[in-house]
Amino acid sequence: MNSTLKDFLESCHTLGILRLIVTSSAAVLEARGTVEKLFYAELPKGRYANMHTEGFEFHLNMDKITQVKFETGEAKRGNFTTYAIRFLDEKQEPALSLFLQWGKPGEYAPGQVEAWHQMREQYGEIWEPAPLEV
């Protein structure tokens, strides 16, 4: 697949409400929202995908993402499958994780899990974005 990370991010709106997670050595930040109305900026530090919502702002340095990985897991609380997309940096560590967000535990919105599976089928379980155009 010869798509860019920008193409991938644009298709994430099909996933519905997500839990966006960023983890550092000292903190975890989680926000709920949809990935939509993205805009882009080229800065000296890199090319950024940006999103502003009422509840949070999102800025992803796309130049730092080397792989995107689709993962399923078992919920920490409850007995149901979780669906994640991990954006990995050059150290193969998650820079950003997107989890499908459920209403009640294990109850995803209609079509949400199917959209995740469609994206995984389109991009593969592990995908390396094509270089961004300058």
Rank of each mutant, 00 (worst) to 15 (best):
H59D: 11
H59I: 01
L60P: 05
L60T: 02
N61K: 10
N61C: 13
N61G: 07
N61W: 14
N61F: 15
M62C: 09
M62S: 11
M62L: 13
D63T: 10
K64C: 15
K64I: 06
K64N: 12
I65H: 00
I65E: 04
I65A: 09
I65L: 10
T66Q: 10
T66C: 02
T66Y: 01
T66K: 12
Q67M: 10
V68M: 04
V68Q: 04
F70T: 01
E71W: 00
E71V: 00
T72K: 06
G73A: 10
G73T: 04
E74T: 08
A75Q: 07
A75M: 08
A75E: 04
K76N: 02
K76T: 08
K76E: 09
K76D: 11
K76P: 01
R77P: 00
R77S: 01
R77Y: 04
R77C: 00
G78D: 12
G78T: 05
N79D: 13
N79T: 08
N79S: 10
F80G: 03
F80V: 04
T81K: 07
T81G: 01
T82N: 09
T82Y: 08
T82R: 06
T82P: 06
Y83F: 15
Y83P: 01
Y83V: 03
A84Y: 07
A84S: 13
A84D: 12
A84F: 02
I85H: 03
I85G: 02
R86T: 09
R86Y: 13
F87S: 05
F87W: 09
L88Y: 00
L88E: 06
D89Q: 07
D89I: 12
K91C: 05
K91Q: 15
Q92G: 09
E93Q: 12
P94I: 02
A95H: 05
A95L: 14
L96F: 09
L96D: 08
L96G: 05
L96P: 02
S97R: 08
S97W: 05
L98E: 06
F99L: 03
F99I: 01
F99P: 02
F99N: 05
F99Q: 03
L100E: 00
L100T: 01
L100C: 08
Q101G: 04
Q101C: 03
Q101Y: 05
Q101P: 02
W102D: 13
W102T: 09
W102R: 09
W102C: 13
W102I: 00
W102P: 00
G103F: 01
G103V: 04
K104H: 11
P105D: 06
P105I: 11
P105L: 14
G106T: 05
E107P: 01
Y108G: 06
Y108L: 11
Y108H: 08
Y108W: 09
A109V: 04
A109F: 11
A109S: 14
P110C: 07
P110F: 06
G111V: 13
G111P: 11
G111A: 13
